[in-house]
Design a binder for these strands. Structure first.
Length: 431
RNA sequence: GCGAUCGUAGCUCAGUUGGUUAGAGCGCCGGUUUGUGGUACCGGAGGUCGGGGGUUCGAGACCCCUCGAUCGCCCCA
């Protein structure tokens, strides 16, 4: 433990190491592998943008913009903000780089995001997301493909007991009509709602629908449903999405109360949520959504771009990492144990040869034979190759199989080839 | 931003109603074994008890402040 006057990490940041770091890397690697199957192109985005990119895209009144952004003036007096999400920055890049020429454009990225929130398990001030977007596609097939990718990735991460909760917010007109009806409905019983929801009535009436407060919940069941306000086009769109998901084999459930917090969403809205009582739900506590997103057909215009349909999702890497469990490491095929200066030199040559042959090699920097054997064993090496003056003089090496303790001598000439054929099972260790 | 619980070795924790030099297991280092790991036995290092202030003859225990983590709300990934 640090003592005295030493610096501490900033609240809500993490130093990720060991199994947690391996799980984190596994999530990113799996995402990278799966996004290539769907031909999403990798993009790298700035970590900060002009503040207006977020305030205009996300909405001034949202909590994210009004109280959670890390904003600051740079030395030129410009207001900049550490990105609290990916979508707004990607939309800005799409407009400022003329990426319309690539439409429909499928992009994927991952990295750090920043929100000034009260930290909790699975919720940090610097957190990390994977993100996928399809920009310039109004077709419901885009929603289907995007969701199919999310579903496959979650499965390939080995996460079970998670269900896609799906809703539609309708097109702009549908959404407005529904919103107005909700304001009427909840406004009539305003005095009986929770304090939070009385405030939501002004700021974000849709959010009352997923309130956890029992005072609100008794009214939610009979609240106006979006289905009653959907235009024919919006309904047809949602039907196309759901039938596409069925065709793609993606299991989903309708969640009529599922809404999105940010202003730019239209049509499809979704979250992957652990089933109640599942191991995943227990692991995550109240921070339960592991992947969420939707269609944001209105976003480009709010940034001054041409109307551009788009759909996307993001998922918290930390939350996913909590669900993947222990990620098994590839253990060393061989640990090389040199004794003496001449042997150190030869060992370095051997290690290079082995690694060029794609073998995992453990070569310690220090220690006597006992220490190095201990280390080889602790790392789970399959073989130890012992190189001392005696062996070098004979042009041979002692090779020990750690599981059995059996030890034989091999010629150093052709040792890489011999080791490879032993590892593939083509040759016997004893020769 | 609101409410609550909790901070004792690297880790997981124990520390009676306030009472001497603050303990255990695991891990780490060393030895039994100077060129042979796992097991066993022996030994060792490592703590201003999150930080600051207060009460008291005396505080790891009590009080206040502060920092942090955790749980719920809010928000959201």
């Amino acid at each position: 433990m640090a003592k005295g006057n030493t610096p501490k990490a900033i609240r809500g940041t993490q130093d990720i190491f060991g199994p947690d770091a391996e799980a984190f890397a596994f999530v990113v690697e799996t995402f990278e592998r799966v996004r290539k199957l769907y031909r999403f192109r990798r993009v790298e985005m700035p970590v900060f943008e002009k503040t207006e990119v977020f305030s205009r895209a996300i909405g001034e009144t949202t909590d994210v913009v009004s109280k959670e952004m890390y904003s600051f003036e740079d030395r030129g007096g410009e207001s900049l903000t550490l990105r609290p999400e990916f979508t707004a920055g990607i939309a800005r890049a799409y407009i400022s780089n003329g990426w319309q020429q690539h439409a429909p454009l499928k992009v994927a990225t991952h990295g750090a995001l920043f929100r000034y929130e009260r930290p909790q398990k699975g919720r940090y001030r610097q957190f990390h997301q994977i993100d996928a977007e399809i920009i310039g596609a109004a077709e419901p097939q885009a929603d289907v493909e995007l969701l199919a990718m999310a579903d496959q990735m979650i499965r390939e991460l080995g996460i079970e007991g998670v269900t896609l909760h799906l809703n539609t917010l309708g097109d702009g007109d549908s959404r407005e009509a529904w919103r107005a009806a909700l304001v009427d409905y909840f406004g009539a019983v305003k005095g009986e709602l929770s304090e939070d929801s009385q405030e939501r009535l002004e700021k974000n009436p849709l959010r009352i629908l997923d309130s956890k407060d029992p005072r609100d919940r008794k009214f939610v069941a009979d609240a106006p449903k979006i289905d009653a306000f959907l235009s024919d086009g919006a309904k047809a769109f949602f039907d196309a999405v759901t039938s596409g998901l069925d065709a793609a084999g993606v299991k989903w459930t309708r969640a009529e109360s599922l809404v999105r917090g940010l202003d730019y969403y239209r049509h499809t809205a979704f979250e992957f949520i652990p089933d109640e009582g599942s191991a995943a739900a227990n692991a995550l506590g109240s921070q339960s959504t592991i992947l969420g997103g939707g269609r944001y057909d209105g976003l480009m215009e709010s940034l001054g771009g041409a109307p551009t349909p788009a759909v996307g999702w993001a998922a918290g890497i930390e939350r996913l990492a909590m669900l993947v469990g222990e990620v098994s490491q590839r253990q060393p095929e061989v640990a090389i144990i040199p004794l003496g200066e001449a042997a150190e030199h030869r060992a370095t040559e051997l290690a290079a040869e082995f690694r060029n042959a794609q073998l995992v090699v453990d070569l310690g920097f220090r220690g006597n034979m006992k220490k190095r054997m201990q280390r080889a064993n602790a790392d789970g090496a399959r073989f130890a190759i012992i190189l001392g003056d005696d062996e070098l003089a004979k042009g041979r090496a002692a090779v020990k199989e750690l599981s059995s303790g059996e030890q034989v001598e091999w010629q150093l000439d052709g040792v890489t080839q011999r080791l490879l054929s032993v590892l593939t099972g083509e040759a016997s260790f004893r020769g």
